[in-house]
Amino acid sequence: MIVNHRHARPGARRRSAYPYALYAPAAVVYLVIFLVPTVMAFYFALTRWTLFDSTFVGLQNFSDFLAEQNLRIGFQNTIFYAVVTSGMKVVLGLLLGVLLTSRLRLRGFLRSVVFFPVLVSTVAVGITFSALLRPDTGLVNRVLTLAGVDGPDWLGDANTALLSVALVDVWKGVGLATVIYIAGIMSIPTEYYQAVMVDGGGAWHRFRHVTLPLSWPATYSVIILSFIGGLRSFDLIWTMTRGGPGFTSDTIASIIYKQYQAGFFGLSTAGNVLLFLVVTAIVVPLNYVLGKRQVAV
């Protein structure tokens, strides 16, 4: 029997187009929520605008934002904050993931306890810890006083303000890192652990030679997600310190918000575009390097 390919082609084309039609709703949402606002942000970054009109000024907004006197401090704080929070989430998330995949009787309850802070509003967490870290009436310093230690002004001292916020960020976000690690560890075949036990290896050897290298995909995900979140962090910092004392805990995001508050909408939009470019310039190479490491593992 001879098949007429001329008549078969239109049907084949329709069949091949069928799976792509399923992407259409997601593509529309992505276009409306991400691509269109991004293009508009790039345009308005080149203007001085208000709610009712705009004036094209070219690259003047970028020049003015880069000349901001606190930008260097904000950039340093942003990198410090991202490195500290992502690093601690990786370490603590891995340790908690190992603990909560072991044979603990209360591991289900402990998993819920660890994940609970992720569900709490960031603003609520910031307000709560602002009260707990007060120098005179805060619970943290009261406990330290009972132990004979003079607690500092955690949020009012330039040396401790940003680090204090970073530690609160870790407390809130380590639950998500732990869940990712739990999923990664539970996906490791048990045969690998049995092989180490047959060779006489103990718990440390199982962790060092099986859990640590084979949970690299989880580590990769936690690093990327935490680092991006750290670079973009704003709400917790603003709730707890508002960039203070002075400008010592300002990040790029808080500097941008202060420009919005002052009514410099074009300037702050240029700052948002620059932040987007900074995050992209850091995360894309990081993703490439970590991705190669993931393939190697």
Rank of each mutant, 00 (worst) to 15 (best):
F62I: 02
R48E: 15
E191K: 07
W171L: 05
A183N: 11
N287G: 12
M240T: 07
W216Y: 15
N77V: 11
V273P: 08
R48D: 12
H209L: 15
Q69T: 12
V168N: 00
V165K: 04
N141F: 04
H7V: 15
R232Q: 14
L155C: 09
G243D: 05
A158M: 10
L46D: 01
L46C: 15
R206Y: 01
G184P: 04
D64G: 01
R48P: 00
A177N: 08
Y257P: 02
G244H: 08
Q60K: 14
Y257C: 03
I223K: 09
A262D: 15
L274N: 06
R14M: 15
I73E: 11
E68I: 03
Y193H: 10
G271R: 03
V3Y: 14
Y20Q: 02
V278F: 15
V278Q: 01
G202F: 06
G291W: 07
P25Q: 05
T137A: 14
G173S: 14
T160F: 13
G74V: 02
R6C: 02
A41D: 04
L22M: 09
Y260V: 12
A296P: 00
R15A: 09
L119V: 14
L133G: 10
L144P: 05
T219S: 10
G87N: 04
G200W: 07
T269A: 10
S221N: 13
V57Q: 00
S187W: 06
V165I: 13
G126I: 12
A12F: 07
S164H: 03
Q69R: 15
K292D: 07
P37S: 07
V118E: 10
T85C: 14
Y181V: 08
R111M: 08
V3L: 11
M40W: 09
F44R: 10
G93N: 03
T128P: 01
G271F: 05
Q261L: 13
L106W: 15
P245R: 01
G151W: 05
F34W: 13
D235G: 08
H7P: 00
D199P: 01
M240I: 15
V222D: 04
G243N: 03
P245L: 03
I256Y: 05
V39G: 09
D235W: 12
S268G: 11
G263T: 04
S249Q: 03
F265A: 14
D157H: 08
G58Q: 04
N159Y: 14
A281N: 04
F109H: 07
P19C: 02
N70V: 09
W49I: 06
L99G: 13
A177H: 06
D153V: 03
K172R: 15
T38W: 06
V222Q: 05
V168M: 00
S233E: 13
T137P: 02
Q194T: 08
S268L: 12
R111H: 06
A158W: 05
T47N: 09
L46Q: 15
V210W: 04
